[in-house]
Design a protein around this nucleic acid. Structure first.
Lengths: 117, 117
DNA sequence: CCAACTGTTCCAAAATTTTCGAACGGTTGG
DNA sequence: CCAACCGTTCGAAAATTTTGGAACAGTTGG
């Protein structure tokens, strides 16, 4: 009845490390995931790019990187999970960072030119 | 006589890729270098951390990563070189990003806790 | 109860990044 | 002119990250 499948560890805001946050967001796939959360929480299955192109273990690893950096919170919800941005906490720790990063729609990919804007 | 040793390639602002910028700044050594440039241009030799702990080829690679991301401009100056932040261009392309990243003095290192602030 | 479902963790291979010695290439002090 | 300098590039080894299949662990619909 209590909503507790497996609670994952989330760092406290004072333990957020700037370079870890930047690193987590420096991957196109992870940045895309973070951008999808701007409009509110999402179930993990709904964070997938297109079809089911990306293996679930790979997605899970990306989510772990985002979670350990303090960017997202991953909460159990029945047999699913909810993912949401830790906006307030990130804003307090690194003012302006999230807005600057998630604002532009130019994710791009390392090594390949980006023409999305 | 003309100040031209070897001109390095610098990307145009419209070619800056956000993930590349974030990646370049996600390394503690590179973030530190970028922070040292906030107060104005520096000769490369003056960007060194402490003594001469870091090999020059390693430093050069970090500078290359920063340069190719569009974060710094590396200009020949006699037999030395000047390094400076591309502030205006970065600000135009990714408003608020540089201020958010270079402002806090919490570089930290991946894996190790940071207590600098 | 239990089969199906969701998503994490384990493990190992592939890819990328980091590091640094050595070689090289302009530039200039003397 | 040329030896010393500064810093980049080359090349290869070490370290880290990325990827994904397989196993595992809650949760719940029927």
């Amino acid at each position: 009845m209590s909503g507790s499948s497996r609670e994952l560890a989330h760092p406290a805001p004072e333990d957020f490390v700037l370079t870890d946050v930047l690193f987590a967001l420096s991957d196109p796939a992870r940045l895309t995931i973070a951008r999808q959360l701007v409009n509110g929480p999402l179930e993990i299955a709904d964070c997938r790019p297109a079809d089911g192109e990306i293996p679930k273990s790979t997605l899970s690893h990306h989510l772990k990187t985002l979670r350990e950096a303090g960017i997202v919170c991953n909460l159990p919800n029945g047999r699913r999970r909810y993912l949401h941005l830790r906006r307030e906490e990130l804003e307090r720790r690194f003012p302006g960072l999230l807005d600057a990063v998630l604002g532009p729609a130019s994710a791009g990919r390392r090594g390949k030119p980006d023409h999305s804007q």
